[in-house]
Design a protein around this nucleic acid. Structure first.
Lengths: 194, 194
DNA sequence: TTTTAGTCTAGTCACTGTCAAGATATGATT
DNA sequence: AATCATATCTTGACAGTGACTAGACTAAAA
């Protein structure tokens, strides 16, 4: 009469988000299954509906949570970099790529999936927070904020997406050090000129 | 006794590929369904299996076909551009983005999906053809082929992926002319220096 | 004409997301 | 403390899915 699972989980919402990211990482966005998430959390197949509505609801919440970590990763990279605006911006770009490589399925969910609802306020807010951060940094460096932010962002995003897709054959057999140096070079070139 | 459908389709394989791209465009990669493709082609739900094995087989064939059109689009853009190596490379980049915008779901399938088999010879060949073309152009311009090709490619890819995701708010309300100019500017900056 | 191989259909299975109904626990009101 | 309302979770059902099997049909080879 001790190890009995209580009827109420306690914090199922958080547990489901954790399970969902694990499922996402193991099976990918396209093979993602609500029932499998429920099973992993040790709960009935219909339980998630009460917290997230449907599958889109869960994935939307997960994407929003992902954007928060995404921003946090960039901040972590920035903290370890020199404090000049340019270095900070490059660090943010490396953080962008680093996040994608560490959690590729989540990254894909955030930026590419159609199974999330971008009209959702929480997701929209989290996503715009990440974008706003980048734009603010570009303004510190100076230049045409719109175009320059787009340039840096697109470069980081393209590197990230191609890396996790495994399509850049040049890169597959590269030493991690050399890869980082190359990423830095490419990002630097995308910056507005000093 | 005239309009009766014959038992054999005639060219079901091609018809299925056409239907598959239409389904892809309408419902997206993640909601893609084999049975729906079969229905659209007016054929039983198990018919595709005889031509493509399983769903992955069909999507793999479709991706390979996509890479051919992808290359053709770039060539079309190049034909309309000045014949200097730099202009040709930029045109290829614009073609890259143009293809993604015209057929976003197919583009996503080619570069992002896990429902394709990249060990498949046809797909691998088609994909490497597109990559080889880009690399060849970079060598004409001069520079460190590996790094420079990666830079241009990542920039084009990032612009394309972000554009079709609709995440670049700066761009959503932009005039098409201004957008093209901006894309050209950003791609130019990613090029090895003259 | 007979055989063989290729093409397509029909039926089945386990799995999926969603819905509806009911069981159980929590907490507010009295 | 007792009752009621609400939130949480389970169970069971449904149509749609991918994959598999067996068989029907057809065309071309022998």
């Amino acid at each position: 009469m001790s190890d009995e699972k209580p009827y109420h989980h306690g914090d199922l919402r958080a547990a489901l988000l954790l399970a969902a990211e694990a499922e996402l990482a193991e099976r990918g966005v396209e093979a993602f299954s609500l029932r499998s998430v429920a099973k992993r959390a040790g709960v009935s197949h219909a339980a998630p509906a009460h917290h997230f509505g449907d599958a889109t609801g869960l994935l939307t919440a997960l994407a929003a949570y992902g954007f928060q970590d995404f921003l946090a990763t960039q901040h972590a990279f920035e903290a370890r970099a020199p404090k000049t605006p340019r270095d900070q911006l490059i660090a943010a770009g490396l953080g962008y790529v680093g996040f994608a490589r560490a959690r590729p399925a989540l990254f894909r969910l955030m930026f590419g999936s159609e199974r999330t609802d971008y009209k959702n306020a929480a997701l929209k807010g989290a996503a715009e927070g990440a974008i706003g951060h980048l734009k603010a940094q570009v303004m510190l460096v100076g230049g045409d904020a719109a175009q320059d932010a787009t340039a840096v962002w697109a470069t980081a995003h393209g590197l990230a997406d191609l890396l996790i897709a495994g399509r850049i054959s040049v890169i597959r057999n590269m030493q991690e050090d050399d890869l980082q140096e190359m990423l830095t070079n490419i990002l630097t070139r995308s910056l507005p000129e000093a």
